[in-house]
Amino acid sequence: MFPIDVVNQCKANNRKAQLQLYEQYCNGMFHVALRFVGNADDAEDVMQESFIKAFEKIHQFKGEVTFGAWLKRIVINKSIDFVKSKKENLVALNENHVYIVEDEDWSVENDVTVEAVKSAITLLPEKYKFVVMMYLVEGYDHGEIAQVLDLTENTCRTRLLRGKGYLRELLKNKVYGTRP
């Protein structure tokens, strides 16, 4: 059975179809949540809440994108909401008036592993971490990131550029041993 058939059955509140979709997407969505929240227990909670919301709102799924992409957006939003709810003090900076020069060079030293990059991303300040993760790991473009995070595209570009700078420094310090 094709996923769209299963989705249509879910729209009719078919529990077996819901279980089938859950089983098909739960592992992937768990890993998406884990990248954002950084803790397996919290990622499990976020994933469960995301599926609940998806099944409650499944009538809004129009098939313009794949079900997986639609669900992934819910998981990312829930993950970000979860992380924000854990923060006590957030300081908003107005980055709308900064002119950004795009830098598409994401190259790193040859001895830097993918795991080192992922680990360094988790150390970025939150407002940069989400943008870098969504761009570099999840493959979203600036328009999509701006929409999900409720930012302007210019702010998104600014945060990506600054996040990349922080990331390079973290990786450089790791490679040359200037930080423990």
Rank of each mutant, 00 (worst) to 15 (best):
I4S: 15
C10L: 09
C10I: 06
A12D: 09
L19C: 13
Q20T: 15
L21V: 09
E23Q: 10
M29P: 10
R35F: 05
G38H: 08
G38L: 09
A40P: 08
D41E: 07
D41C: 08
D42I: 00
A43I: 01
E44C: 00
E44D: 09
D45R: 08
D45Y: 09
V46H: 03
V46R: 02
V46M: 02
M47D: 03
E49N: 11
F51G: 07
A54S: 09
A54I: 00
F55L: 07
F55E: 10
I58Q: 07
I58T: 04
F61S: 01
F61I: 00
V65T: 10
A69I: 06
A69F: 05
L71R: 03
I76M: 03
N77Q: 04
S79I: 00
I80K: 00
I80S: 00
D81L: 10
F82C: 03
V83F: 06
S85M: 05
S85P: 01
K86V: 07
K87H: 13
L90S: 14
V91C: 09
N94P: 09
N94Q: 12
V98P: 07
Y99V: 14
Y99D: 15
E104C: 05
W106F: 06
W106K: 03
W106C: 00
V112M: 05
T113R: 10
T113A: 11
V114K: 13
A116M: 15
A120W: 03
I121T: 03
T122L: 00
E126L: 11
Y128E: 02
K129A: 05
M133V: 07
Y135S: 11
Y135V: 06
G139I: 01
Y140E: 03
G143W: 08
E144W: 02
A146L: 05
Q147I: 03
Q147D: 06
V148Q: 07
L149I: 04
L151P: 00
E153P: 02
E153K: 08
N154W: 08
T158H: 13
T158I: 08
R159K: 14
L160V: 04
L161P: 03
G163T: 10
G165D: 14
Y166E: 14
L171Y: 06
G177P: 07
